[in-house]
Amino acid sequence: MVAVRYAHDDAWVRADNSSAVGTVRRMAVDLAEAAGFDAERTGQTAVAVTEAVSNLVKHAVEGVVMVRSQPVNPAVVELVAIDRGPGMPDVARALRDGYSTSGTLGIGMGAMARISSWYDVHSLPGKGTILVMHFTAADAPSAAPHASGLSRPIGEETVSGDSFAIAATGDGATPETTVLLCDGLGHGELAAQASRTAVELFLRAADEEPLATLERLHRGLGHTRGGAVAVARVRATSVSYAGLGNISGWIANAEGRRGMVSVPGIAGHQARHLRQYDFDLPEHATVVLHSDGLTERWHPSAVPGLFARSPAVVAAGLLREAGSRRDDACVVTVRPGDDRD
């Protein structure tokens, strides 16, 4: 089993002045050293991160950046950069060394991509750019993870009441990815305690069917504020889903989306007739879970090309497009068999 740490540890930095460059670079260096990078690789990571954040500061509109241990593999240092403009008309051209543009992340992007072990970009003129880069101790390519997740606290809070976890389940012949999303009731530390408890309980029971896991979570959250909880098990051609409360579950691709059903209630306090639902998963579809910190009014057609990108970029794009600053926000994305490099 492989699982993330608590999602509310995600620390976003606004890239609105030059101090952000040093702040994020120091975070990246600390993570690289903790992951066992040697001095040369740590320095390369710092150079790429510095370039990415510098370009956000210089060119981006409402740029934010986060660097963390990658959720599925903590030995990977991950940078996620999001902005709302101006975007790039030609990403492939921007990736060429020596090409310069006034668009976000245009300067030095080819060098950043070459330093990274894996990267993915989505950009639309007038809409903005999303960049995700991975760095590993060995300077070698790494595959995109099949699942990712992001969280962001309400307003200026530093702790989010929303959390997620990701586990590799099933046997080698039939691999599966099972994910949890919990929206702790309310905001702040007490909500975070509820979602932390949900993550801990999930990690003990991720091999169970989603309904059994949800029942375990409902029993185990009684001493907390409780919250909305959903568990999804994603296989190559199907997804099993069990949700309680206002977690939104979707099966989405470039053409549209299909909702998955959560029953009313509050995990730990109020629930009747918990249910598990099974859905077919079309080829190239992405399973999306998000808290009510993201509006349900998003649609894949509003962001052309986003759902052709990796789950990490899809999660970042949805957080940008649908996330609210008036609530904690969390989104988890899963796509089985995504071998994009």
Score class of each variant (00 low, 15 high):
Met1Leu: 10
Ala3Glu: 13
Val4Ser: 13
Asp10Lys: 02
Asn17Cys: 10
Asn17His: 13
Arg25Lys: 07
Asp30Phe: 11
Phe37Ala: 06
Gln44Cys: 14
Ala46Leu: 06
Val49Lys: 03
Ala52Leu: 05
Val53Trp: 05
Asn55Gly: 06
Glu62Gly: 10
Met66Gly: 14
Gln70Met: 10
Pro71Leu: 06
Glu78Gln: 14
Asp83Pro: 03
Pro89Ser: 06
Gly98Asn: 06
Thr101Leu: 14
Ser102His: 14
Thr104Gln: 01
Met109Trp: 04
Ser116Lys: 01
Tyr119Lys: 02
Val121Arg: 06
Ser123Tyr: 03
Gly126Trp: 00
Lys127Leu: 09
Ile130Glu: 09
Phe135Glu: 01
Thr136Gln: 05
Ala138Ser: 13
Pro145Ser: 11
Pro145His: 07
Ser151Asn: 11
Thr158His: 11
Phe164Asp: 07
Thr174Asp: 14
Glu176Cys: 13
Cys182Met: 15
Gly186Gln: 05
Ser195Val: 05
Arg196Ser: 15
Thr197Leu: 08
His218Ile: 02
Gly220Cys: 03
Thr224Tyr: 06
Val234Arg: 08
Arg235Val: 10
Ala236Ile: 02
Thr237Asp: 14
Val239Lys: 05
Ser240His: 13
Ala242Gly: 11
Ile247Gly: 04
Ile251Arg: 03
Ile251Asp: 04
Ile251Tyr: 07
Ala254Val: 12
Gly256Met: 09
Ser262Thr: 00
Gly265Met: 01
Gly265Val: 02
His273Arg: 11
Arg275Lys: 15
Gln276Lys: 07
Tyr277Ile: 09
Pro282Thr: 02
Ala285Gly: 06
Thr286Lys: 08
Val288Asn: 09
Leu289Ser: 07
Trp298Cys: 02
His299Pro: 05
Val303Cys: 12
Ser310Pro: 07
Ser310Gly: 05
Ala315Arg: 03
Ala316Trp: 10
Leu319Asn: 01
Ala322Pro: 01
Ala322Ile: 08
Asp339Ser: 13
Arg340Val: 10
